[in-house]
């Protein structure tokens, strides 16, 4: 018996700790929303939500864990109701609760749902009870069918997307390192530019300059000698390499 009580106390403590953590982060979020809404950005808001969801999860884990005795089997009964303001209670609840009187106690200790919610649940329950076994089976089958269809669609779409994205990631080969190196070394050292070049004298532009240059001194000479001179000179045009 004592062991169980001890266990209960410990689990209560950890529950209180988790809940107060949760409360603090909710408070912080509200504070942020109220005071920093001008500078607050979406990622940090998402961070806050992630924190909350994590804390809720860990609270849920504590409740489900084996170490916590089933809370449904525990009884809680108010021992003392008082109509006057209770300073101690106010401190404990951080100013939210001033009295623990006949009006407030039932509300805080209730285990039933709110009447409206209860009514709705009741309606659903009666509706569920009215359907026959056959009908239920039919509906179940229908639902299964629709769900599996949906799953198929989702899966096939996902496959398409995966294919597309993999295509996209494999597609854009927009630059090549070999070409970069080839181009850079071509500008720097003339690699690939020096070889395979026929040096024909008839090249229009370079040849022209040469022609003029040669023709000037040879104007006075006989036409036949001009020809030979041009030929002879065209071998050594101004951009000649060694």
């Amino acid at each position: 018996m004592q062991k169980e009580e001890k266990q209960l106390e410990m689990s209560l403590e950890s529950m209180i700790q988790r809940v107060s953590e949760l409360k603090n982060s909710i408070g912080a979020l509200i504070f942020k929303l109220e005071h920093e809404y001008e500078t607050l950005n979406w990622p940090s808001l998402l961070d806050n939500f992630a924190l909350l969801s994590g804390q809720l999860n860990s609270l849920g884990r504590v409740l489900k864990s084996d170490k916590v005795p089933s809370l449904k089997n525990q009884l809680l009964l108010p021992l003392l109701l008082h109509p006057d303001p209770d300073e101690n209670l106010r401190k404990l609840t951080e100013g939210r609760l001033l009295f623990f009187n006949h009006e407030i106690a039932p509300n805080y200790l209730r285990t039933k749902l709110e009447p409206e919610v209860e009514e709705k649940t009741q309606q659903l329950v009666t509706k569920a009870q009215q359907t026959t076994q056959e009908q239920t089976q039919k509906q179940l089958n229908n639902l299964n069918k629709v769900t599996s269809n949906l799953l198929d669609i989702i899966n096939s779409t996902r496959e398409e997307w995966d294919n597309e994205s993999s295509q996209k990631s494999s597609q854009p080969q927009t630059s090549s390192l070999t070409d970069t190196n080839a181009l850079v070394s071509a500008t720097l050292t003339g690699k690939g530019l020096k070889s395979n070049r026929t040096r024909l004298p008839e090249s229009p532009q370079a040849g022209m300059q040469q022609l003029q240059k040669i023709q000037n001194p040879s104007i006075s000479k006989a036409p036949s000698s001009i020809k030979t001179q041009i030929k002879a000179a065209s071998g050594g045009h101004p951009y000649q390499r060694t």
Partner: peptide, 22 residues
């Protein structure tokens, strides 16, 4: 785009050096 000159001094008779641009 860099072009190799097939004939020395002839800027019209040219072939691309690579399939890329620098």
């Amino acid at each position: 785009k860099l072009f190799k000159m097939n004939i020395q001094g002839d800027v019209n008779n040219i072939d691309p050096l690579t399939l890329s641009c620098l």
